[in-house]
Design a protein around this nucleic acid. Structure first.
Lengths: 148, 148
DNA sequence: ATATTTACTTTCATAATGAAAGTATGTTAG
DNA sequence: CTAACATACTTTCATTATGAAAGTAAATAT
């Protein structure tokens, strides 16, 4: 009586079913790179996610244990979304996507030394990124720390 | 007069626009892990991609330079799809997705020693996987070679 | 008290997916 | 040589997801 609804037991397929849509990883990126936390901050991102899509993605990521939601202490209208440990495990995926994108987009906006740091020092960059993000920081706000 | 249609210049966004749908990376996985090459082989994969979706994904991946298409030498009905070098650059992404999926799916079908090899020996596994796939082989058909 | 913020929900037109059947060309079996 | 079959699609159409815009309710700022 197993086999609920998943397409297969493949680990890659499992990952794709969890966050393999075109928006979920952009939300994770907003947290990891830019330190965004609230609905309004995600909504304002450059890629212009629609409000209804954002709402459904946030709910789905929370339900899947990738994000957790907490009422803001300072403003009761706001909620803060944070990555769980499971969500932090996506940092390596983000780094690979950044590396691939930077390598193959002739007009990429990625900074060459960030990409170089990821390429030459992957383990350490991953670990420091996790640590920084776990404590509420972001890559952009802690560049020196993360890159080394 | 730049800025065609892309949502942003972010490298992560670029990657997601190229293969960030729920099917493209499964096709790449079919090639890398299982050595699939033809339309019919992709169509038969466990996740049951629809024929119209498969056709559009293959065309899109070819147009984006991730796959190349070649008439089969032995059977003129068949076409063979292969990864370009740009497509081979997706191997690290696949390895990360496998690692994340295996780590977070309690019922994963991924073999523990493949995952262990990826985790402890990422660089070498990546490089050997690329080499094997570039020559038309696959992970499943060359397990000992790839894992070491 | 009133205006504004914030996090949504609702509505609705358009696009993508999924299931099923159909087609054109090449191959195989008798 | 011909009929059945294989292969790579395309077409159709119902269902679902996306995207744009407007609306709502609670909390905060003025």
């Amino acid at each position: 009586m197993k086999r609920t609804d998943r397409r297969s037991d493949c680990a890659i397929n499992f990952s794709l079913e969890m966050f393999g849509d075109p928006w979920s990883l952009l939300i994770v990126r907003d947290i990891v790179y830019f330190g965004k936390k609230t609905y309004g901050e995600f909504l304002a991102s450059e890629e212009r996610i629609g409000t209804s899509v954002l709402a459904s993605r946030l709910a789905a990521l929370e339900q899947k244990g990738i994000l957790s939601k907490h009422p803001s202490q300072t403003d009761k209208r706001k909620d803060e979304y944070r990555l769980t440990e499971k969500g932090l495990d996506l940092v390596p995926v983000l780094l690979d996507l950044a590396e691939w994108g930077a390598a193959h987009d002739p007009e990429t906006g990625a900074s060459p030394d960030w990409i170089a740091a990821v390429r030459t020092n992957r383990e350490a960059v991953t670990k420091r990124t996790r640590t920084v993000v776990r404590e509420g920081g972001s890559v952009v706000g802690n560049y020196e720390t993360v890159v080394q």
